Simulated assay, not measured.
Amino acid sequence: MIGQRIRLLRKMRNLTQADLAEALDVAKTTISAYENEVNEPNHDMLKNLADFFNVSVDYLIGRTDSHLQDEVKEGLKYSEDQLKKIDELHEILLSIENEEMRNMIIQSAIMYANGVKASVKK
């Protein structure tokens, strides 16, 4: 569970394992071990990951399915219905077992979102 969520959050930010490792001041192999669930992050690393991705530790360890912290939800100014849809989409992504397919969908969503932002700014 923790590994899947770290991988998803990393890919949603379009980061490589090396990028995340550098940001957290750990080896790339450490991130790989977390994502492949060979090792689990200790308490301090869980806090660092939660802070970096702006999610709760509860989300990382699977105690909640909402990946947005309350402060973040307030800052986004989304309606409750929109937040619910974001969480539903996130759960759908987590449920896709084929990692290649999941990654392709995430990358497509990121490109779409970036395209929408670019067209709005014109």
Rank of each mutant, 00 (worst) to 15 (best):
V55K: 01
A23Q: 09
A50G: 00
A23M: 05
A50V: 01
S56F: 10
A50P: 02
N39W: 07
N39D: 13
N54R: 03
T30Q: 13
S32H: 14
N48M: 10
F53D: 03
L49N: 04
D51W: 00
F53N: 04
S56P: 08
I31M: 01
V38E: 14
I31W: 00
S56N: 06
F52S: 03
E37W: 04
T29R: 13
E37D: 15
N48K: 12
E35Q: 07
N48D: 11
F52E: 04
V55P: 05
F52W: 00
K47V: 09
N42G: 13
S56C: 06
D51F: 04
T29N: 14
D51Y: 01
L49R: 04
S32K: 09
I31V: 08
L24F: 02
D44M: 11
S32Y: 13
T29E: 10
K28G: 04
K47R: 11
E37I: 08
N48Y: 00
E22W: 00
E40V: 14
E37C: 14
D44A: 14
E22Q: 09
N42H: 11
E35H: 07
K47G: 03
N48L: 12
K28F: 09
N36L: 14
E22N: 07
N42A: 07
A27C: 07
N39T: 10
A27N: 12
N54D: 12
K47F: 04
A23D: 07
I31T: 03
N48H: 08
L46W: 03
L46H: 06
N36D: 12
S56A: 08
S32I: 05
H43P: 08
N36T: 15
D25R: 05
V55R: 03
M45F: 02
A33M: 10
D51Q: 04
L49D: 05
P41S: 06
F52N: 03
A33K: 12
F53V: 00
D44F: 11
T30H: 09
E22C: 05
S32M: 07
T29Y: 09
A50F: 02
D44N: 15
